[in-house]
Amino acid sequence: MNELIVPQFWIAQSNGNAVSNATEVFKEITTAKILQAIAVVVVAYFSTVAIDKVVRWLAEKVPLRFRLAIAQSLPFWQAFVLGLAIVVLLGLFLDFSANNLFAITGTVAVALGFAFKDYASSVIAGIIALFESPYQVGDRVTIGDQYGEIINYGLRGIRIRTPNDDIVSIPHNKIWTDAIVNANKGNVEAQTVVDFYFAHDIEVDRVSKILKRTAQTSKYTQIDFPILVIIEETPWGTHFKLKCYPIDARDEFVYQTDLIRRAKAALSKAGISYPKLSFRDQETLPE
């Protein structure tokens, strides 16, 4: 039988003035154990990939009302497989007596503290975020300058798809320091805001009615959610904000386009005028 001879690791623990008995931490490493470990890693890897594909496929196949619930279960399944694999691997090579557990925890903590501080911080933040849920798969979030739909929840971070179809990776440890703006928080509906600008002399009630009707009659609108028209006066014109919800938050941008297109057609038919800006007014325009 091939056996790898490994040096014996001894870890000394100090407790006040006394030095406790050293304990053997590592178990004997054999070829069989290494093969077992490789098998565990391979099975864990393919299980994670399979779970990812199955859950994503299923989430797209089921009716809308179940989509997010299924998509959001993905990190839990992956964490479960990963956790199981780690426990099996540690069980293969380490001896978990009470003394060893302290020793290993201390060693790992020191190693992580120096070498993998940010990585460990992200992983821990990811685990905490699983339960605190500042964001979940399918949510539409703004973190820093990035806005988009969370399409992946990994061990170290999330991936979001932006409106430009870019994929942006963001580490979980942003939750310690950054504000997380979540537009739908586990629901399929997310508020959409569309801005309209008109001249000061327009009939406000008429415009409000047209904008409200535009939202009420859009095929994308979730009709039992509130539809609001907010008006703000500025030096260069009257600013209207139309706030409403699409049936599916994924339609946010086509929904905005649909609202603008249909509102402009109706407003043009009604002869509503837009603000005419002087050169000086342009300096006060919002970004």
Partner: peptide, 9 residues
């Protein structure tokens, strides 16, 4: 059933 499951009121 399909429309109801897909959030149509």
């Amino acid at each position: 059933r399909d429309l109801s499951n897909n959030q149509f009121r």
